[in-house]
Design a protein around this nucleic acid. Structure first.
Lengths: 342, 342
DNA sequence: TCCTGTTGTGCAACCGGTTGCAGACCACCG
DNA sequence: CGGTGGTCTGCAACCGGTTGCACAACAGGA
């Protein structure tokens, strides 16, 4: 039995302490932890037992220095407080943990400059980055993505892996839903400049409206917030549309508020459809009809893709694109068109 | 001029490359970056210029290995998706960045066991941890806090720094508000087991009710979610109270929903006060009267305190307690008591 | 002119792991 | 009995910085 009565506390046990206590070389201890098939079963068990007894925990920093892999990931979003993100962050972080990674969460505050700066800062201490709904231009992202594995969410850049939400399909469903309720004139309240989602919605909604033979007016860009919705109210009314599709739930809620202030009632006078299916939309009165976005699966998938890329860095860096389905959740903010029977 | 035409790319420039290019020893380069007063101005400028030209960025991992400081912080919350947290996370993360730190965000999913495990995992790779509204018992926290700097938010443990929100004052204001509206019988819908906030509310509300000479029934524990509120509905009705203070906005919203299902209208029949002042409460109809919690300042302050503790680790580890003010935001979910004129 | 003190730089050990290489040991086979 | 091959462990270099110590160069004082 090695001398006892010391150790046991959590003071900086190193691999050398374990090696000495177990009567083996440090390299054997190292292998017992990270390449256990290279060491005889009996030796390994003894080393691990001694390590456990001493309370030894491998130092991640030292490990990272030699291996060149930190097992840390970065997750960059535009605004943590936007209810679209928390479920995504939650899922991403939880899944990363399962895979043995930790995640840095950072917020650009909708500022393109901060976004680039943040990427460069984070790049020095992570193995890869998930960029959610970036506002940077494609070429800038492509350039930055040359240094480090990137996975994009809701953005397509050739050469980079991406997780996309099928917002085009969602927008189509929204148009069809409104058309089905008899609305012959719709308005689309777009999102911020640089948003892939907004562009997709526009494209798909335009096409769907044409197919349905109804009119669609497109407005924007707008801030992706409640204020953005309030500010867009006048422009929406000016179009004369009776059905509106908003960039996201927050904009939809702001819009409903703005309409209410002018005594235009939703859904009696105007129907409004949001996008994202956030808590906010569920809680709002009238409860929001909205396009449900798979935020949690997107977070999980993005991390999965990223880890895959990171861990196969040697081989051909295959890029993958995954598209996740969306659906329409019909609630109380949409109704049949016209001053029908009350 | 040193040979040009090579370098300039971002391929792993090390301190030795810079040293060689600048014609100095690596230690001089190191000092030029981290202890610039030790090196002659002229030399320093030359080194930095060469470094910039080569695109050299110090390797944080290597730096962490020798200094024993990672410049990373951990932030542990119970549920990222609870709207109480995002503003706090956002502020904490933004302020940490200003101070040159990055933050790992982790979510315990309201699971005590996960909380402890997470602390231990994170402890190996951060300089300190902010624990927000922990559910762990005080003695466990105290034990874990022996290894690593901790800052608590909404929890008091002797020997550890903390940022507290003056929820007691908020609860008092809520009771006074309801009493002022003529409610002579209140109910307090408590939060989850292990919540300091819930205990504080209970204590303060009890005292305030006594002072106002009105009755207060306490219910709980309840899950800190909308579901928790819905489930508590029957118990609330059973008390016969006409004024209710809920653990947080989500519970309040759930409660209002539950009441509505039984055709008890808020605020006509029952007044409800929430706590946190989240987006959810603002968006809900009726808009929620609620106790505003300084979540963003709390995040900022907690990180500030933590960094202070980390950076003065040598000296006496002074623990600080900061209490942040709360206030009552009166909106539409509270009204005068009794079946008055409708 | 010699001594002392200050400033600036180099040297080399060190942080705590990982890993290529070499060699010991032990079959097993011809 | 020598040769071949496989398994297991030790050795030592290495990852990319930091830092205590030694020493050179130079200035000022006696």
């Amino acid at each position: 039995m090695p001398q006892d009565g010391q150790g046991e506390t959590s003071v900086a046990m190193t691999i050398r302490d374990v090696a000495q206590a177990a009567g083996v070389h440090v390299s054997t201890v190292s292998r017992a932890f990270s390449a256990s098939h290279l060491v005889k079963r009996e030796t390994r068990d003894r080393v691990l037992a001694v390590a456990a007894e001493l309370g030894y925990q491998p130092n991640e920093t030292a490990r990272a220095l030699t291996t060149g892999r930190t097992r840390n990931l970065g997750l960059i979003v535009s605004d943590i407080a936007n209810p679209f993100y928390p479920p995504l962050i939650k899922a991403a972080q939880a899944y990363a943990r399962v895979r043995g990674y930790q995640v840095f969460v950072a917020d650009t505050d909708e500022d393109v400059h901060a976004e680039e700066e943040l990427i460069q800062t984070l790049a020095r201490q992570v193995d890869g980055i998930v960029l959610v709904s970036p506002r940077l231009a494609n070429d800038v992202i492509a350039r930055l993505g040359g240094d480090l594995p990137f996975v994009l969410v809701n953005r397509q850049v050739t050469g980079l892996s991406a997780v996309l939400m099928d917002v085009a399909h969602g927008a189509t469903l929204a148009v069809e839903h409104l058309a089905g309720l008899g609305h012959g004139h719709l308005a689309l309240v777009g999102g911020p400049r640089g948003s892939w989602t907004s562009a997709e919605m526009r494209r798909a909604a335009g096409r769907a409206a044409a197919e349905q033979g109804i009119r669609l007016d497109v407005l924007g860009p707008n801030a992706p917030t409640e204020q953005g919705g309030i500010k867009a109210t006048a422009a929406v009314l000016r179009t004369g549309a009776t059905g509106v599709i908003a960039y996201n739930d927050l904009v939809a809620i702001g819009l409903i508020e703005g309409l209410d202030d002018r005594e235009v009632l939703v859904p009696r006078d105007v129907s409004v459809v949001g996008v994202d299916d956030t808590v906010a939309g569920r809680l709002n009165r009238p409860r929001l009809t909205t396009v449900a976005m798979p935020t949690a699966p997107a977070g999980r998938t993005a991390v999965d893709l990223l880890i895959e890329t990171v861990e196969t860095a040697g081989t051909a860096r295959a890029t993958a694109q995954t598209t996740l389905a969306t659906s329409l959740v019909v609630r109380d903010s949409t109704a049949t068109s016209g001053p029908s029977a009350g």
